[in-house]
């Protein structure tokens, strides 16, 4: 990574090179839920701000990455949209709950009573859908511990977490082959 050539380049770097590297390019953009969105060239807005300006409104709780309500997939990785500078989304794919959710999880959350006011639900659904898909890709079911760990950073102040955990494990069982050989804790036998 850090080579002697790089060190030498730092010593000989000229002002024109830095400015030209960011000038004259096409307007920056990202893809959100399958549609292209133009990003600002300048400014300090977060990804959440930009999505909101394009009428893609996500819940915004803490604006500091702790509550998880605005979680989206950025490059297929869950992240609170409020802590990502908009420029970091350039050329990337963003998926909100509109395209990142698994129907099986949404259904299971309703069946398990895992939703009340619903403010935190979009972020939870995005994260747990991603977790369930990842486990399914490995041919297994999510464990209770995995779900609880994934929920760290998703604050819910009305439902609590037990129903969400059971809904996620149930949905994962359905997602990964009807739960055959899976015990109550969601681990494979």
């Amino acid at each position: 990574m850090l080579t002697r050539d790089e060190i030498r380049r730092a010593e000989t770097y000229s002002i024109s090179a830095g400015i030209e590297s960011s000038a004259g390019a096409a307007p920056p953009a990202c893809t959100t839920d399958g549609r292209s969105i133009t990003l600002p060239l300048n400014g300090t807005e977060s990804v959440w701000d930009v999505l909101d300006a394009h009428s893609i409104t996500l819940p915004l709780g803490c604006a500091s990455g702790h509550c998880g309500s605005c979680t989206v997939l950025l490059g297929d990785v869950p992240v609170p949209a409020c802590i990502v500078p908009h420029a970091e989304a350039r050329g990337r794919d963003i998926a909100t709950i509109a395209t990142a959710s698994e129907d099986a999880l949404v259904t299971a959350m309703m069946e398990h009573g895992a939703v009340q006011c619903g403010f935190c639900s979009p972020g939870i659904v995005v994260t747990l859908s991603w977790l369930i898909r990842g486990a399914a890709a490995e041919g297994r079911v999510v464990t209770v511990d995995e779900v609880r760990d994934a929920l760290t950073g998703h604050l819910c102040r009305c439902t609590g977490y037990a129903a969400v955990v059971s809904a996620a494990v149930a949905a994962s069982k359905g997602f990964s082959g009807n739960g055959q050989g899976i015990d109550e804790a969601g681990t494979t036998a």
Binding site: E6, R9, A10, Y13, A17, S22, N42, T44, R90
Partner: peptide, 15 residues
């Protein structure tokens, strides 16, 4: 107005 520079080398970042 805040501009964004995506440095492609450490030298650019340092400058």
């Amino acid at each position: 107005m805040t501009t964004h520079l995506f440095a492609s080398t450490w030298g650019e970042a340092v400058y």
